[in-house]
């Protein structure tokens, strides 16, 4: 691991962006940042401007209304930029994955970003409805290299 990578992993400033969530994941994020869970011990700090952020905490399926703002916010982040997709809706759209008013999860968002030439250096998925604060801390620990991935991604298709 290079020195640059080591320093970047020691200080993870997060920007919280609700893209149409029911607020359950947002409450859990706040819980993770309270003294009880103490995310600051991992160098995590909540910032208000995407200009300061290293990682974006994305909650909810991305609604069509929110999409331009979400793209602007991600573009405003300095590189290397990460997205931590939170909750079932954030990861794959949840029960809203194919509704008319949402684009459905972070993977669709990544496709749109790629079309526009906006690079996202890493994406982390934290499933759950809502997520548990410990799950968010696990994602942070994963970024820092403290723990290993729980599962490898597998795509099952109907025969």
């Amino acid at each position: 691991m290079s020195i640059k990578s080591s320093i970047l992993k020691r200080s993870i400033w997060v920007f919280h962006l609700n893209t149409g969530s029911c607020n359950a994941c947002d409450i859990e994020i706040l819980d993770a940042l309270t003294p009880f869970h103490d995310a600051e011990r991992f160098g995590v700090k909540l910032v208000v401007s995407p200009r300061h952020a290293d990682a974006m905490l994305l909650t909810g399926p991305v609604t069509a209304e929110a999409l331009p703002k979400v793209i602007n916010a991600i573009e405003a982040m300095p590189r290397p930029r990460m997205i931590i997709a939170l909750g079932s809706c954030g990861c794959g759209g949840g029960i809203w994955h194919d509704t008319y008013s949402t684009i459905g999860g972070v993977n669709k968002l990544l496709e749109i970003l790629k079309e526009r030439g906006i690079v996202v250096d890493a994406v982390y998925y934290v499933p759950g409805c809502p997520i548990r604060p410990e799950a968010l801390l696990y994602a942070v620990a994963l970024i820092k290299g403290i723990v290993s991935k729980k599962r490898e991604m597998k795509i099952y298709k109907a025969e």
């Binding site: 200080s11 400033w13 103490d38 011990r41 160098g43 300095p78 590189r79």
Partner: peptide
């Protein structure tokens, strides 16, 4: 709570210098 390490501010500043 446990809090960040004493060197956290140094890491924060170094990180900000390193990011684009």
């Amino acid at each position: 709570r446990i809090g960040p390490p004493v060197t956290q501010t140094i890491y924060d500043l170094l990180k900000l210098v390193l990011v684009k």
